[in-house]
Amino acid sequence: MRDVLRLSVPLALWLAGFSGVYALQGLTCSRHWPEDLPARPALLVGWALAVLLQAVLLWLISRDPSPSRFVQGTSLALAAVSLLAAAWTSMPVALTSTCL
C-alpha cells in the first residue's frame, strides 16, 4: 500500500493545489473578496505554495526510496510530472487579467 500511495499522492495533491488556486481565483472575483485587497499577490502566493508542496514531495520520495526499483523510478517521475504540472497549469495567475 505504501508503494501505491507513493505513486498516487503527488498527482492527487497537484489536483488539490490546482483546484485550490482555481477556487481562490473564483473567490477573488466574488462578492466575498474585500475591495481593497489586491487579488494577484494572493494568487501568486497560492501558486507558489502549490509548487512548493510538490517540491517537498519530490524531495521526500527521493529521500525514502521504495524497495522496488520500478516503483521508485516511476514514483520519482510522477512526482516530477506533478511539480511541472503545478508550475505550468497555474501559470496564468502571473499572466492574464484576473476577473475579466
Binding site: Q25, A85, P92, T98, L100
Partner: peptide
C-alpha cells in the same frame, strides 16, 4: 467564467 479561470484549464488541457 473569467479569462484567468479559462486559462488554467486551457493550460491543463494542452498538458
Amino acid at each position: 467564467i473569467p479569462h484567468m479561470g479559462l486559462a488554467f484549464f486551457s493550460a491543463a488541457s494542452t498538458l
